[in-house]
Design a protein around this nucleic acid. Structure first.
Length: 239
DNA sequence: GCGACAG
DNA sequence: ATCTTGTCGC
C-alpha cells in the first residue's frame, strides 16, 4: 500500500524525441533557490538491473542527518521500459524510484541522486526531474561527468572547482576525500550549489561517495530475487 | 561526418 | 549498469 502519491506530470511510455520535449517543458519548474528549513533526514536512491537489463530494482535508504544513522529502507522492482541513453537517464530510473519512494513512511528533507542534476545538456538531469515530481529538495551526485569542463581540483578534502558549460556554472567537481577522483555535484531542486556541496560533504565520512549513495547502492545490488545471487557458484563439481 | 556520452 | 580474479596498497 503506497504511503505517498506523486503527481503524474507526464506519461513514461514515450519516445526518446518526446522525452526531450518533456525535459524542456518541465525545466521551468525547477527551483534553484534554497527552500530548506532544517535538514533532519536525507535519502539516498539507486537503481540496479537484472535479467539482462529487463528488470530494475530501486532502493531508497533514509538516514538521519547529520548523524547518518539508518532510519528506514524500501525496495521496489519494475520492468524496464526505457533504454539507457546519455541525457535521458531519468526516464529509465525514476519509475522504479517513485515506486520505492512511495513506500517510505516519512519522506526525507533532501534526496541525493546517483547522477546529474542541473549539470545536464538541457539542465534537467535525474535529480531535477525527481525533485520536480516529488517536490522534495534534491541533489545530483555523479561519479563521472556528462557535460561541462573544469579546472584541476586541489587535492584536499572539500576542495572544488566550478563545472562550466557554455559560460555557465552548472555544478562542481568536488574532492570528497584526499587522493580520490572528484565527484560531480549539481543542484536538483529547491537548493543552491553551495548548500548542495555542504550537504554532500556532511554525508561523506570515510569514502569517496556519500553514505546515502553507498547504502542505497549496496541495497539495490545485493537484493536479487530468490536470494541465490549471493552464493558463489561451484566451478569444478568433481572435486 | 567525427567524438563524447550520468547509470 | 553488468559480467568477473586477482592484485596492489594502507
Amino acid at each position: 500500500m503506497p504511503r505517498h502519491r506523486f503527481p503524474a506530470l507526464h506519461s513514461w511510455k514515450i519516445s526518446y524525441a518526446k522525452a526531450k520535449q518533456v525535459q524542456q517543458e518541465l525545466f521551468p519548474l525547477v527551483e534553484l533557490r534554497d527552500g530548506l528549513h532544517k535538514v533532519n533526514k536525507v535519502a539516498g536512491v539507486d537503481v540496479g538491473f537484472e535479467d539482462k537489463n529487463t528488470v530494475a530494482r530501486a532502493a531508497v535508504v533514509i538516514l538521519s542527518y547529520p548523524a547518518l544513522q539508518t532510519v528506514e529502507t524500501t525496495l521496489a522492482r519494475r520492468k524496464v521500459q526505457f533504454p539507457y541513453i546519455p541525457g535521458y537517464l531519468s526516464f529509465r530510473e525514476i519509475p522504479p524510484i517513485l515506486a520505492a519512494l512511495s513506500k517510505v513512511e516519512q519522506l526525507p528533507d533532501v534526496i541525493l541522486c546517483d547522477g546529474q542534476g542541473y549539470a545536464h545538456p538541457r539542465r534537467f538531469g535525474l535529480a531535477c526531474h525527481l525533485g520536480v515530481i516529488t517536490g522534495i529538495p534534491s541533489i545530483g551526485v555523479a561519479k563521472t561527468r556528462l557535460v561541462g569542463e573544469h579546472a584541476a581540483v586541489p587535492n584536499r578534502k572539500g576542495a572544488w572547482t566550478p563545472l562550466l558549460d557554455k559560460g555557465e556554472t552548472i555544478g562542481a567537481a568536488l574532492r570528497t576525500r584526499r587522493d580520490v577522483k572528484p565527484v560531480y555535484v549539481s543542484v536538483g531542486h529547491k537548493l543552491c550549489l553551495t548548500t548542495a556541496i555542504e550537504i554532500v560533504m556532511v554525508c561523506c565520512t570515510n569514502y569517496r561517495l556519500p553514505e546515502t549513495t553507498r547504502a542505497a547502492h549496496s541495497l539495490a545490488s545485493r537484493s536479487k530475487p530468490s536470494g541465490a545471487r549471493s552464493i558463489r557458484p561451484v566451478s569444478s563439481p568433481g572435486c
